[in-house]
Nucleic acid binder design. Structure first.
Length: 829
RNA sequence: GCCCAGGUGGCGGAAUUGGUAGACGCGCUAGUUUGAGGGGCUAGUCGGGUAAAACCGGUGCAGGUUCGAUUCCUGUCCUGGGCACCA
C-alpha cells in the first residue's frame, strides 16, 4: 500500500469495534479446563465510588497485560471484576443528597462497568459481582452463620463512639479528633452489645502462614507481624496485704522484676474500687478517672503520662517489699491484664512516669562490662547483666528471664503467657447500608440464628436516612418485628449490619460460581482455581483487608471448603499515578485526570501504553500530557509501518526465516529475538512493563530504520518476522490496535489467542560482538571481535585503537584483566 | 523515637550477576516538509572543553574495598511510607 492510501489511525473507531467483536465472540469467557494450567489473576475489589481516573486505569491495565500475556503463553486465565458496594459513602451520599444508597450504588456500578469495558481489559463479565446484591450477601450471611457454627462468632459489650447531640454511633473516621464530624460535639464512649469474630484464635496461624508466602512483599509481611504483635512473657501476681484478691501483671522483661518500684493500673481495672474504697485518696482518684474516662483510647495514647496514688500497696512476690499502686492513663485494660509492673530504670514509659511523680528508680540490669552502672538521665532498656537481684545477680537478662520464670511457676504465682496486639474482629456496624446480621432476638430462646433456607435476610429498601437516632433499621418495624425460627413466637431482628470488610474477605471465591444459588461456590471450581495466583492492589490494604481475607480463608480451609490455607500466593502492590504537579491525585486538588476525557482524546491503547511505560509498576509517577501524546505518536508509527507493508504480510511467511540479506538481516533478527527474550522474562517475573515498552519502541526504531534502508524490506523474512513480532508483543499492552493491524495483515484468528513468540537462541548469537577496552579502569575505546576471542587477540586489536594506544604510550603494562566476550582492562604504571 | 523503601540529565526513568552511566520516552534546539492545527521527517541534547576530536568531571554527601563501584561496605544528610505508650 502506498503512503497516500494509508488510512489514518482512529482509535475512537477501532477500539469500540473490537470490544464489541470480542464480546460477540465471548472471547474472554472462561471455564475450568483440566488440560491447561490455570492462572487466577485478580485486582483488589474496587469500592463502587462512581468514577474511575487514570490511576485505576494503570492498576487494571497492569493486570490485563499480565493476563493477556499468560493466556498467550497457554494458561487458562481467570480474570474477573466486581464491586465492593456496601458501605458508608453510599449512606453519606443519601443523607447529603437525598438519593437512596442502592440507587446511588447501582448507577455508580453501571458507570464503572462502562469505563472498565472501555479500557479494554479482558475481564470475564459473566462473573461480575456486586456485594450489595441479595444474591451475593445471602452468602455473606451464610458465611456469618458458618462462623457462628464453628464457634467463631460471639456477642459482647464493646465501646463505640457516640454523639450525644445526633444520638448516633459514629465510625472511627467520623469521630476524628474526638469530635463528631457533622456537629462538632464531643464524642462519648458508650458500651454496646456487638458481634465479634475470634480472629485471635487464629493469631498464631496468621503469623506462621506469613513465613510460607515468599511471593509477598517483605514490608507487608512485617506490617502484619507487627499488627499481630505476638509477645511471649510471664503473668504473675502481686498480693495486696489486707485484700483477698491479687493483682496480676504481664511482662516480657522478668529480668527487671527486682527493679519494680510501683504498680501501674488502668483506670477501669476490675480491682480499683476495692483498692480505693474508704481510703483518703478515694476522692482524688475518682476525680482523676473522671478527667480521663471520656477520652478515647487513641486520645489517651497522645497525652502526657498522668496518674494518682491509689492509697494501696502490693507486696513484691520476691523481695516482699511494699510497692505503691498508681492509677494511670497510660496503662490500657484491653491488653494483658490491665496492670503493669513499673520498672523505671529499664522501661522508657515507666521512667517518664517515675520522674514526673518522683518515684524510686532502682537499677537492676547493667550493660555488659560495667557492673557499677546506675541509671540517671535515661533508662537502660537493653539486655545486660543483673545486679541488686538477690540470688540472680550476675545472670544475663536472657538467663534471668527463664530462671526467674521457673521460680515463679514453681511457687505457683506465675505462668508463661503469650499476648497479642491483634484483637477480635468487631463485625457489627450500626448502619443501614450493609448486609444484615442473620439473627433474631427471641424473648424465649434468646439469640437465634436465621435458618439457612430463610436467607437472605433482605435489607428493606425503605428506611429513614436522617443520620440520627442510631441505626436506621431500628426504625423499620416491618424489618425488626419477626417471628422466632425456633418457637414461632414474636421476636426482633438484629439491626446491626456487617463490616464491609466481611464482604470483601471472600469475594474472590464467589467469582468461581458467581450466580450459583445452591452454594457460595462449588468445591470442584475451588479445587481447580483457588488460591489466587497473582493479587494486585494498593499497600493501604496491607493489614485490614489482607488479614481478614487470610483469616476467612483459613476458617474455610478448616471447614474443608477450599484447598490450601493461604488465599493469595503472590501479592503485588502497585504505585499511584500522581497529578501532573506531582501531588496526590484528588478532587480537592483539582488534578484528577479521568478515563473518559483521556480516552476521547488519545484512545485507550495510548493511555495503556503510556501508563505502562511511565515507570515500574511498584512506584508512583506523575501524569504527563505530553507523555501520552508520545504514546499516540508511537502507535501512529506502528500503524503506518505495518500498513505500508500489509500486502506483503498477507503472504504466508517463508519457511525458516533465516538471514537472506547478510548481516543487516542478522542484526535485525538479533534485535527481534533479544526483545522477545527481554519482554518474556520481564512480564513473567518482575513485571517492569516500562522496560517492555522501551523494548517495543526500540524494535519499532529498528524496523523503521531497516525499511528506510531497504527498498524491498517486505521481501525479507527477517523484516516480516520482526513486524509480526512487534504486533504480538504489543498485543497485551495495546490490544485494539494490535488486533486491527493483525487482521489487516491477513490474519483470521484473534491476535490475543495466538501463541506468544518464542525466541531463537541461534539468532541471539552474533559473529562479532563489542569488547570494552579500559586502561586503568577507564573506558578508552571499544573494539569488535568474534565471541570467544582470546585475550591476546583482543589486546592486539585494542592497542591499534588510537585512544587506547595514547594511554599506553611510554608506560609499562603491569597487568591485564580480561572478561571473556566483554572487556579488557589494561593496567599500566 | 523505631522499622522499611528510595535519592541517577530540564522531566519520567534504564543499567536484573560489580564491567561502555543516562537505554526508551517526554521536553528542548536546529534543519527540513510546508495549507495551518499539541502534524511528518532528519540531526543534536549530562556539565566543562574542542572547529570536530582528544581530554577532565559526574549517579544526594564523606570515606572505604576493587584492575574497575549507580551496583558491595561504613558513616552522614534528605525524601516518601509504616508503627508509635502493647508492658
Amino acid at each position: 500500500m502506498s503512503e497516500a492510501h494509508i488510512p489514518p489511525y482512529e482509535p475512537q473507531a477501532i477500539e469500540p469495534k473490537w470490544q464489541r467483536i470480542w464480546e460477540e465472540r465471548r472471547q474472554n469467557e472462561i471455564g475450568e479446563d483440566p488440560a491447561r494450567p490455570k492462572f487466577y489473576l485478580l485486582e483488589m475489589l474496587p469500592y463502587a465510588s462512581g468514577d474511575l481516573h487514570v490511576g485505576h486505569a494503570r492498576n487494571y491495565t497492569l493486570g490485563d497485560v499480565v493476563g493477556r500475556f499468560r493466556r498467550m503463553r497457554g494458561a487458562n486465565v481467570m480474570h474477573p471484576m466486581g464491586f465492593d458496594a456496601f458501605g458508608l459513602p453510599a449512606e453519606a451520599a443519601a443523607i447529603q443528597h437525598g438519593t437512596h444508597p442502592q440507587d446511588w450504588t447501582e448507577s455508580n456500578i453501571a458507570n464503572m462497568i462502562r469505563q472498565l469495558r472501555r479500557l479494554g481489559v479482558a475481564y470475564d463479565w459473566t462473573r461480575v459481582i456486586d456485594t450489595s446484591a441479595p444474591e451475593y450477601y445471602r452468602w455473606t450471611q451464610w458465611l456469618f452463620l458458618l462462623m457462628y457454627r464453628r464457634g467463631l462468632a460471639y456477642k459482647k459489650e464493646a465501646p463505640v463512639n457516640w454523639c450525644p447531640k445526633d444520638q448516633t454511633i459514629l465510625a472511627n473516621e467520623q469521630a476524628e479528633g474526638g469530635v463528631c464530624w457533622r456537629c462538632g460535639t464531643r464524642v462519648e464512649q458508650r458500651l454496646v452489645n456487638q458481634w465479634f469474630f475470634r480472629t485471635t484464635d487464629y493469631a498464631d496461624r496468621l503469623l506462621e502462614g506469613l513465613d510460607r508466602l515468599p511471593g509477598w512483599p517483605e514490608r507487608i509481611k512485617t506490617m502484619q507481624r507487627n499488627w499481630i504483635g505476638r509477645s511471649e512473657g510471664v503473668t504473675f501476681s502481686f498480693e495486696i496485704p489486707g485484700a483477698t484478691e491479687t493483682i496480676s501483671t504481664f511482662t516480657t522483661r522478668l529480668d527487671t522484676v527486682y527493679g519494680v518500684t510501683f504498680i501501674a493500673i488502668a483506670i477501669d481495672h476490675p480491682l480499683l474500687e476495692q483498692l480505693i474504697a474508704g481510703k483518703p485518696e478515694e476522692a482524688k482518684v475518682r476525680e482523676f478517672i473522671a478527667g480521663v474516662a471520656d477520652k478515647t483510647e487513641l486520645e489517651r495514647t497522645q497525652m502526657e503520662k498522668l496518674g494518682v496514688f491509689s492509697g494501696a500497696h502490693a507486696k513484691h512476690p520476691l523481695t516482699g517489699e511494699r510497692v505503691p499502686i498508681w492509677v494511670t492513663n497510660y496503662v490500657i485494660s484491653s491488653y494483658g491484664t490491665g496492670a503493669v509492673m513499673g520498672v523505671p530504670a529499664h522501661d522508657e514509659r515507666d521512667f517518664d512516669f517515675a520522674r514526673k511523680h518522683r518515684l524510686d528508680i532502682a537499677t537492676v540490669v547493667t550493660p555488659p562490662g560495667d557492673p557499677g552502672f546506675v541509671v540517671h538521665d535515661a533508662p537502660y532498656i537493653d539486655d545486660g547483666v543483673l545486679v541488686n537481684s538477690a540470688e540472680f545477680d550476675g545472670l544475663t537478662s536472657e538467663q534471668a528471664r527463664s530462671t526467674i520464670a521457673e521460680e515463679l511457676i514453681e511457687r505457683g504465682i506465675g505462668e508463661t503467657t503469650v499476648n497479642y496486639k491483634l484483637r477480635d474482629w468487631l463485625i457489627s456496624r450500626q448502619r443501614y447500608w450493609g448486609a444484615p446480621i442473620p439473627f433474631v432476638n427471641c424473648p424465649n430462646d434468646g439469640l437465634v440464628p436465621v435458618p439457612e433456607d430463610q436467607l437472605p435476610v433482605l435489607l428493606p429498601y425503605d428506611a429513614p436516612f436522617t443520620g440520627a437516632q442510631g441505626s436506621p433499621l431500628d426504625n423499620v418495624p416491618s424489618f425488626v418485628n419477626t417471628t422466632c425460627p425456633q418457637c414461632g413466637g414474636p421476636a426482633k431482628r438484629e439491626t446491626d449490619t456487617m463490616d464491609t470488610f466481611m464482604c470483601s474477605s471472600w469475594y474472590f471465591l464467589r467469582y468461581l460460581n458467581a450466580h450459583d444459588d445452591k452454594a457460595p461456590w462449588e468445591q470442584e471450581a475451588a479445587w481447580y482455581w483457588a488460591p489466587v495466583d497473582h493479587y494486585i492492589g494498593g499497600a493501604e490494604h496491607a493489614v485490614m483487608h489482607l488479614m481478614y481475607a487470610r483469616f476467612f480463608y483459613k476458617v474455610l480451609n478448616d471447614a474443608g471448603m477450599v484447598p490450601k490455607d493461604e488465599p493469595f500466593t503472590r501479592l503485588f502492590n502497585q504505585g499511584f499515578v500522581l497529578g501532573e504537579n506531582h501531588e496526590k491525585m484528588s478532587k480537592s486538588r483539582g488534578n484528577v485526570i479521568g478515563i473518559d476525557e483521556t480516552a476521547d482524546r488519545y484512545g485507550v491503547d495510548a493511555l495503556r501504553l503510556f501508563e505502562m511505560s511511565a515507570g515500574p509498576p511498584g512506584t508512583d509517577y506523575p501524569w504527563s500530557t505530553t507523555g501520552i501524546a508520545g504514546a499516540t505518536r508511537a502507535l501512529n508509527r506502528i500503524w503506518r509501518l505495518t500498513l505500508r507493508h500489509a500486502e506483503a504480510l498477507r503472504r504466508p511467511p517463508k519457511a525458516g526465516a533465516a538471514s537472506s540479506n547478510g548481516s543487516a538481516d542478522a542484526e535485525l533478527r538479533y534485535g527481534v529475538h533479544s526483545k522477545i527474550k527481554q519482554v518474556t522474562e520481564e512480564i513473567g517475573d518482575r513485571m517492569h512493563m516500562n522496560t517492555c515498552v522501551s523494548a517495543i519502541m526500540t524494535l519499532l526504531n529498528d524496523l523503521e530504520a531497516y525499511a528506510a534502508s531497504h527498498d524491498d524490506a517486505s521481501a525479507s523474512p527477517a523484516f516480516v518476522e520482526g513486524l509480526r513480532t512487534l504486533l504480538l508483543i504489543l498485543a497485551p499492552f495495546a490490544p485494539h490496535i494490535a488486533e486491527e493491524l493483525w487482521e489487516r495483515m491477513g490474519q483470521v484468528r484473534s491476535i490475543h489467542l495466538e501463541a506468544w513468540p518464542a525466541y531463537d537462541e541461534a539468532a541471539l548469537s552474533r559473529t562479532v560482538i563489542p569488547f570494552v577496552i579500559q586502561v586503568n579502569g577507564k573506558h578508552r575505546g571499544t573494539i569488535e571481535a568474534a565471541p570467544g576471542s582470546s585475550e591476546d587477540a583482543v589486546f592486539e586489536k585494542a592497542r591499534a585503537v588510537a585512544t587506547v594506544n595514547a594511554q599506553l604510550d611510554g608506560k609499562t603494562i603491569r597487568k591485564r584483566i580480561f572478561v571473556p566476550d566483554r572487556l579488557l582492562n589494561i593496567v599500566v604504571g
